[in-house]
Design a protein around this nucleic acid. Structure first.
Lengths: 114, 114
DNA sequence: GTCGTATTTAACCACAAAGTTATCAACTTA
DNA sequence: TAAGTTGATAACTTTGTGGTTAAATACGAC
């Protein structure tokens, strides 16, 4: 799992980490603040932050004894870009569903035109 | 990792599995065909396919002793949808970069207008 | 310097993931 | 029926992940 895209997807695959990102979308926050909504220990959240930082999804600054985190959405752009390769497939399948539904409504006159 | 989005992201986080999906984007393929590009055993690829199927990213039909796989891109749409929540952040950061570069070119007359 | 707060690190545990080889099952064909 | 092909499954090993508690670090306040 050495490549960047894998690291990003893997970081995003955890609901706790996605929750942290959602919180950071509203602005910077300290580790303690980020940990508040979760029942797990602060150490566990700290590890999640390390994963997110490793994937480049957050950055951390220093401010006295606090280490405020901020969202860095750059890597998500890469994911979105990769997904674009497949957009036509999920749109296509919608199209096919629409075609199917249309055929149903017409009473299927000529059902299989392929 | 019970939720659908986590399952999808986790399935996509593996480069072998993404390779398999890329191959399937060109059309249906059997397990053996999908395994050909990789050095790992057929059993390992079979497990990857199970993960992809579990995430709803592929479907498998039966055809004699073959089990041809096809791409099912539906779950990717959910990922793309989730990512949309963050698009403004990566676009915003690009904007800020552009602003910064523009200021540099102008020789920074009034550098910090915030 | 000591105390309290914020955060990280270390050591550990349980479990899941990714791979292996060997075996089994389903199907086609001779 | 026997043999070959395709694929899945079982048992196992290794490594990674997500969590724990306890100790260490960094800083501000007193």
């Amino acid at each position: 799992m050495t490549d960047q895209l894998s690291a990003t997807l893997s970081a995003l695959a955890d609901p706790t980490r996605r929750g942290i990102l959602a919180r950071l979308a509203t602005g910077e926050a300290t580790v303690k603040e980020l940990a508040a909504p979760y029942e797990m220990s602060l150490a566990a959240v700290s590890k999640h932050l390390k994963v997110l930082e490793g994937a480049g999804l957050i950055s951390r600054s220093k401010e006295a004894q606090w280490r405020p985190c901020r969202l860095e959405a750059g890597p998500m752009r890469d994911v979105a870009g990769w997904l674009e390769n497949y957009r036509r497939f999920w749109e296509e399948s919608l199209d096919q569903l629409e075609v199917y539904l249309a055929e149903l409504q017409k009473g299927d006159p000529g059902g299989s035109k392929n």
